[in-house]
Design a binder for these strands. Structure first.
Lengths: 150, 150
DNA sequence: CCTTGTTAGTTACAAAATCAACTATTATCC
DNA sequence: GGATAATAGTTGATTTTGTAACTAACAAGG
């Protein structure tokens, strides 16, 4: 055993490694949109994600955002502080459980959310345009599966 | 104008935003394999990528790795130093152009590469197993397209 | 009630990524 | 040939992330 003279039959090209491809595609496809929330609002990625979760689902707690978006609580905490400084959201203590903070976008936050959502939508359409509609649908389905979002 | 009473017709769920899905899928699918090169060899992701490029393509320069893998030169530089410390690669000055360093895996580096490639292959098969063969092929093709790797 | 455990969120410190400036070498072109 | 620019790679300062320990509030069992 272990004479293993030939790695030939293996034929596994690490370039095809799904996590690698996924990372490359994710980075590449994030770049262009990243410029928008960075240049236009000075936001970091996590801040944009928090904003988008609040814009999309309405009032939430930091915990809930973390669970949904799979973001660690320290990142959320810092993002919430930044968004608060910039007057994009306000916090309010939950009277029933005073450990909890309910987070809600201000109207400035909502405006930023709508603006960025519009850009995101257009950008998404551009990416989707690389493929047929069926292919794109399948892609999203597969990505959700890989991300355990289904 | 701008009376814009209804955002209804928009119907764009940021959860479907391709860069978001790609990032979530990339992070999720990287986790398990990350544990392996981290626990088994104490490597960082960039170090693993450099290793895998050298293992896959043979001798290369830092520049070439950076271009192929889209990694910034400072990250490469530091990864190469770490891999050199751990005796996974050796550098040699190119006599034709003495700015350039040719990088090559040592036999220890090659062994690590082969080991990790085996794990990667098995993990890739596991991920691919979530879908049909045609779907997986299409997925890879689409990801390469999104990553501008085609 | 009052110890023990759990949960939401923050903070401090270490590790890593990013960005800019730097060294050394080669290429350009007057 | 000698100034100027370009290139390969490194280093240092700043920013961001990750890890762990922390505070404050609640929960449960005795």
């Amino acid at each position: 055993m272990t004479q293993d003279v030939s790695d030939k039959k293996d034929e596994f090209d690490p370039q095809d490694f799904l996590p690698y491809l996924l990372n490359r595609a994710a980075e590449e496809s994030s770049l262009e949109f990243q410029q928008v929330y960075k240049d236009r609002y000075g936001m970091l990625r996590t801040e944009w994600r928090v904003l988008f979760h609040l814009g999309n689902y309405g009032e939430m707690t930091a915990k809930e955002i973390g669970l949904r978006a799979r973001i660690h609580k320290t990142k959320i905490s810092r993002s919430v502080s930044k968004l608060e400084e910039r007057r994009f959201l306000v916090r309010s203590r939950d009277d029933a459980d005073r450990r909890v903070e309910r987070l809600a976008l201000t109207s400035a936050g909502q405006a930023a959310y709508r603006d960025l959502r519009k850009v995101a939508q257009a950008y998404d359409a551009k990416l989707a345009g690389l493929f047929s509609e069926e292919e794109t649908d399948l892609l999203r389905k597969m990505l959700r599966r890989l991300a355990h979002m289904d």
